[in-house]
Structures are given as C-alpha cells and as structure tokens.
Design a binder for these strands. Structure first.
Length: 483
RNA sequence: GGUCCCAUCGACUAAGGGUUAGGUCGUCACUCUUUCACAGUGAAAAUACGGGUUCGAAUCCCGUUGGGACCGCCA
C-alpha cells in the first residue's frame, strides 16, 4: 500500500546493538506519521561505522519492529527501487557525490591524525573556546594535496562550510531555528577508511530515497545546519524536519542504561504486551489533545488515525515505569482470556509449571491476571495451584487451624466436598454456606482458617476460584491435614 | 565553556488571550468485597521567577534562573 501522495519517511538505526526505547519511539512516530498520511515507511540501516558494528543487530531490530507491529514498507528484503537499504552497500554512491562536492569546492581534503586533532581540541578547551576543527587544511594548494595523497598520508574529506552566513531552518516541532555558519564545524564527510560519516550518507540517502519528512530525535538538532549546507551544495530540496523531544531518565538526562532497561526487547521479554508498549510510548511526547477527552488507552489503529506532528511536544518526557506498569496491568485485565493464556504459557513454562491442562491453565490465568503488572510475574502468584502441600507462610497461622471451631469446619467441609459430584466455584460457595449453618461458625473465624488451610496464606485470589482450580482431591486433603 | 533546545501537580499531559487551570499514573483517605488485589468515591498536589503588551496572560514579547542536547574520522 504505497503512497498515492509523496509522503515518505524513514527510520534509520545503526546496527550497534539492540533497539533502544528512544529509537523505538522514533520508529513509532515515523510509522504513525506514514500510516496516517497513507505514506511509505522505510527502514534504512546506517552501518557505516565498522568499529561499532554488531553482528545480528539488524536482524534483531527488524524482529523487534515486527513483533511490535511496526512493519516497514521498504527496507532490507523489501525493495522499493531506491535500495539497497544498507548504507554499507552504497559506498560508491557516497564516493561519487563526495567527488562532486570536491569538484564544486564544497569539500576539501584534510590530513590531520587523530592525535593532532585531540591536541587541537585540548588547546581550544583550555582557551575556553568552542571545540571545532580549525579549518587548517581548508586552503591547502592543489599541489600540496596531491603530494600528500601520493605519499600515502591518510586523509579525510571535510565539508567546506560557507562562512558568514545565517541558516534558518523550519522545524515542525520547534518552529524556526537560526544558526550562524561560522560556528558550524567543517564536518568530516568521508572517513579515512573510505566510509561516509552519518551526515554525508544521511543527506544523500534521504534525497535519493525521496524522503519527504525527516522525523528523528532532538539529539540531531545541532547538526541540522551541516545537513542544510549539504542539501544546498547539491542543489537539493531540504526535506521537512521534525525533531522529537528526548526520552528522559528520572533525573531528566537522556534516557540511558543505568536507571533500568533501555532495550525494547527487554520489555517484551518481561511480558509487557506489545499493545502496552506502543500505547505508552506513543503518549511520551505526544498527545491527541482535547477531542479524545480523558482517554489513555489507544489501539494502534486509533493512534494512526489521531497522530499528527503538530501535536508533538517540544519538551523532553520522563520514562515513568509506574505508569507503564499500570497500563500493562490494564491491558492484561481486559485482554481476551484465551489469547492472554496463550501469551502466558511460555512464562509459565519458564517458571517451571506444567501447562498441559489447558482448562486449568486458563482458570489460573483468569484468577490471577488482576495481579500482574507484567507477564513474568505470573510465577509469583500460582504456587498454590500446583503445590502438593499448602505450606504455611507464617508459623503462627497454625494456631488458627487447630482450634475447635476450625476442626469442626474442616471436618464438615471436607465431607461435603468429598461427596460433591463436581467441585465448582458455585458448589463450593453452596457447601461453605451449609457448613456455616451447621456449625454455627461464621465470618472471619470461618473463612480465614479455610483460606490458610488451602493456600498457606491470608491473601490471594477468590476462595471459590482457588477451590475449583485445586479440585476435590487436594481440597479435601488440605482440609484434613489439620484434623 | 560555546551553540541550540526546553520550562503546567512528584511523573505523563489538557487548556494556545477570559476555565474554580482538567484528566491519567503515583500517593493518601473512605466505600465495596468476611483476605489482598480489583472496582468505586474523594483529597492533597502545578502554570520557575521578574518585567512588559492587554480591559484581561499558563497562553504573546523580553530578561533572569533552572534543566537538557550537541560540540568525534559515533550515529
């Protein structure tokens, strides 16, 4: 379903590890924007840094995107005539355009070593100046350049930033932003290993891939003038830009490993539902506004319908795990029980529980889902359904179980349950109320010991549900244990 | 330090010249449930500060303060 219009956006991660929550948010907003406008969502892999390349990272990113329902229209394995979508496979293209820049006088060769540049920066810092390339190779003569190249000195190609100009960019989130070119670094465009830097590759690819809107994180804001200079040098139209507010740690610094997990996959693994993740992330830095009222829960389709860049905030947003947990619990409580059970089975198996009895498993899920903030917590709540013995949580509970009234109740109840044709929630209730009448024991004195006898704990799911799941044999056994 | 961005309850946010500044999470209280949880009701809780503009400012402008991002042959 490609574009009838020309809306084309891309998510362009570099394969240096797992998909970060911040990256996921960028991907999501690009996706929502594309789908809302009936445009095209493109995945491009920016693998131009050989030193940070991580094997399988691309596969993982694609997998995570797919798991969360953010499938791309064009990208690796899905050609849309503007590929390849791996930058490492586009080296000749960058080389060609870089040569053009050189010819036009928009770029130049530079021969400093890393050490020399370090020294330069240290000095600048000492003098309290902005650290940036001092443009010392800008005016090397053609002969000097040729000679250095011939003698095998490694070189990079740098952008020749036009001096004394002002660049004004319109950002869809932030409005007009002004930059002085004198403060813009003569960015390296082509590294000494022949690979392009982000800035060169990004601009060329966005143009060649006909990207209409660049939607990316705010950390890119300060490199915008470099990109504009490049677009201008090539004589290309600058795409529309939108810089998204950062996702923040609790201390309001850029979201990073430290405070907790930042890999989207970690959240999936813990059992945050994909609906939750999408819903929650969408509301970080964006809100549909007044028309949607007090609504907090949005399906992906609703998000697509409602999304607009104009409603994106300009301030950073703290990633708040408490609200994520609440939202996940809300989804879990309202999820289709069969589907939820299906999702929970791997977690149950992980926790070492037998899930072969699907009817029982479903009942257990139904009885305990309300406690779950995430699926991997299921193991903490279901021990009682599989134990061969109701181990007392606290030693002193025993006193309650061996009183005269408890014994009376257990005896009567065990007898009734034993003679039930089937132990269900309602037959349990029926039996218990009969016992209440017959023994005259009621209230806390009745219920508490029974609960403890069956589960070993004062707290837990509803007693009738527990009884039904445990079934006759165990219930009777547990009740008679204290006689 | 330089450049750029940002500023409504603790957090996410609504209101975009006129509202008792609204909602959600979290917190607290109460109700319900013979448990916990769920659910329901309610409470505390914010326009950073100072100047303008205006009849009227959270909203527009300026300044201050505070926070953040970037300043790599990383992306």
């Amino acid at each position: 379903m490609s574009s009838e219009n020309n809306i084309r956006v891309r998510f362009a991660p570099s394969p240096t590890g797992e998909l970060h929550i911040g990256g996921l948010r960028t991907a999501l907003f690009n996706y929502l924007f594309a789908k809302h406008n009936n445009g095209t969502f493109i995945l491009r892999i920016e693998d131009t840094d050989r030193t940070r390349f991580v094997d399988q990272a691309t596969e993982n990113i694609i997998k995570t995107l797919n798991t969360l329902g953010l499938g791309f229209d064009e990208g690796p394995g899905k050609d849309g005539k503007v590929g390849p979508y791996y930058q490492s496979q586009r080296l000749e293209i960058y080389k060609k355009y870089c040569d053009q820049l050189l010819e036009q006088g928009n770029a130049y060769y530079a021969f400093e070593t890393a050490e020399e540049l370090d020294e330069m920066r240290k000095l600048q810092e000492l003098e309290g100046r902005q650290t940036m390339y001092d443009r010392r190779a800008r005016d090397l003569s053609k002969d000097e350049v040729d000679e250095k190249i011939k003698s095998g000195i490694p070189y990079v190609i740098r952008l020749k930033v036009p001096l004394n100009e002002e660049i004004i960019v319109h950002d869809m989130v932030r409005g007009n932003v002004k930059f002085e070119t004198n403060l813009v670094d003569d960015q390296v465009l082509l590294k000494s290993d022949g690979f392009p830097t982000y800035h060169l590759a990004n601009v060329i690819d966005d143009h060649l891939m006909e990207i209409s809107h660049v939607i990316r994180g705010e950390e890119w804001m300060t490199s915008v003038p470099k990109h504009v200079i490049l677009y201008n040098a090539f004589g290309w139209e600058v795409p529309k830009m939108a810089h998204l507010p950062l996702l923040l740690n609790a201390d309001r610094t850029k979201l990073s490993k430290r405070q907790g997990d930042v890999a989207a996959e970690d959240y999936i693994k813990k059992g945050y539902l994909k609906e939750t993740i999408i819903n929650f992330i969408a509301l970080l830095g964006w809100h549909p506004g007044e028309e949607s009222g007090d609504k907090e829960i949005f399906s992906i389709d609703e998000l697509i319908k409602l999304f607009s860049v104009e409603k994106v905030h300009s301030a950073g947003a703290v990633f708040n795990i408490d609200k994520l947990n609440w939202m996940n619990n809300d989804y879990i409580k309202n999820y289709d029980l069969d589907k939820l059970t299906e999702l929970l089975i791997p977690f149950l198996k992980d926790a070492g529980y037998d899930t072969s009895d699907t009817v029982k498993t479903k009942k257990i899920v139904g009885a305990t889902r309300v406690y779950l903030n995430k699926l991997n917590e299921i193991g903490d709540h279901i021990k009682i359904f599989f134990a061969d013995d109701a181990v007392l949580e606290k030693e002193e509970y025993k006193d309650m179980l061996i009183t005269e009234s408890s014994k009376k109740v257990f005896t009567a109840l065990a007898y009734k349950i034993e003679n039930l044709s089937e132990l269900k929630a309602d037959t349990w209730k029926q039996s218990l109320s009969e016992v209440q009448k017959e023994t005259g024991v009621k209230g806390k004195v009745l219920f508490k010991p029974v609960r403890i006898a069956l589960t070993g704990s004062e707290h837990g799911p509803e007693l009738p549900a527990i009884a039904e799941i445990l079934d006759k044999e165990k219930v009777v056994k547990f009740l008679r244990k204290y006689l």
